[in-house]
């Protein structure tokens, strides 16, 4: 549904994103991880048709994004920006109504009602946006991203700065949107959130360092060791090339008469994998 191929973008001679290729399919959530300044927002903006890449191509729903089609692309993507960016003096429904008109939806009033109901804020429609809590503002911003029923959603740090309960609510909302068949790219610093939400994880640091399922990432970066605990408290750590070697090692030890209590491959957390990838590991 969203395909990015070899995206490169430079600002004033500084490379923000280099040769990034990724795709997000219908009914899939891809989490975009990376340190500050890694190019996540630039990538999101290129995918949303907000800025064009210097090299490479983006296609949304089969339509290649270029200068002539960028406005159309923006109309088929829902972008949640890092800050909610609401018009704080206006009521919630007027915020959304303006966006419905800007997006050119056929029945703006009905779209506002539907989007508000989607984020369970129908009863807050007449409240002034500036008086809402941070979590409620974020839900209004999500409603704004949904106002034109886009099949592609780009969510830039959707739970940043929210309390755990509100963040949980937003994550449930995102999972609900995936079950409706939308393609969702979530930029986040929260690795637990990425693991919980994402079907695949992309790690970006100017270049794309990895793109795979969380389990495969952990597996691929597992540290080449297996810990074997024997009866009597003895503990052996063996170097391995991959986890496929473990059954043979266990068979050999049993053959040698060892009484094995527990075999533990060195299963690393997504955080360890991420820190290794971005070069900040211990």
């Amino acid at each position: 549904m969203v395909i990015a191929e070899h995206l490169t973008r430079t600002f004033d001679g500084r490379v923000a994103v280099r040769d990034v290729s990724l795709s997000v399919h219908a009914g899939e959530i891809v989490a975009l991880l990376g340190p500050n300044g890694a190019g996540k927002t630039t990538t999101m903006r290129m995918l949303a048709g907000l800025i064009l890449p210097d090299a490479g191509r983006v296609s949304i729903d089969g339509v290649e994004v270029n200068e002539a089609t960028a406005a159309r692309a923006r109309g088929s993507v829902g972008l949640l920006t890092e800050a909610p960016g609401l018009w704080e003096r206006l009521p919630v429904h007027l915020n959304l109504l303006t966006y419905a008109r800007l997006q050119g939806v056929a029945d703006p009033v009905a779209s506002v009602d539907e989007a508000l109901s989607h984020v369970e804020l129908s009863d807050r429609a007449t409240e002034i946006a500036g008086k809402l809590s941070k979590g409620l503002k974020q839900r209004v911003a999500i409603a704004r991203a949904l106002i034109h029923k886009p099949r592609v959603l780009l969510l830039d740090e959707p739970t940043s700065g929210l309390d755990p309960a509100t963040a949980r609510h937003i994550r449930d909302l995102i999972l609900g949107l995936r079950s409706e068949g939308r393609a969702i790219l979530v930029s986040t610093h929260n690795l637990g959130e990425a693991e919980e939400l994402a079907d695949r994880v992309a790690v970006l640091k100017t270049e794309l360092l990895a793109l795979d399922t969380p389990a495969a990432l952990r597996q691929s970066r597992s540290g080449g060791r297996v810990v074997i605990e024997l009866a009597g408290g003895e503990r052996r750590e063996l170097e391995i090339a991959n986890t496929g070697e473990i059954p043979a090692i266990v068979a050999r030890l049993v053959g040698e008469g060892a009484r094995i209590v527990r075999v533990t491959p060195d299963q690393r957390s997504l955080e360890d994998v991420y820190l290794d990838l971005v070069g900040a590991g211990r």
């Binding site: 949303a48 993507v77 800050a83 960016g85 966006y99 800007l102 997006q103």
Partner: peptide, 14 residues
Amino acid sequence: QSKALEPLLATPIS
């Protein structure tokens, strides 16, 4: 000030 420009520019507005 309200950081409303980016969501605004993310619409088809020229």
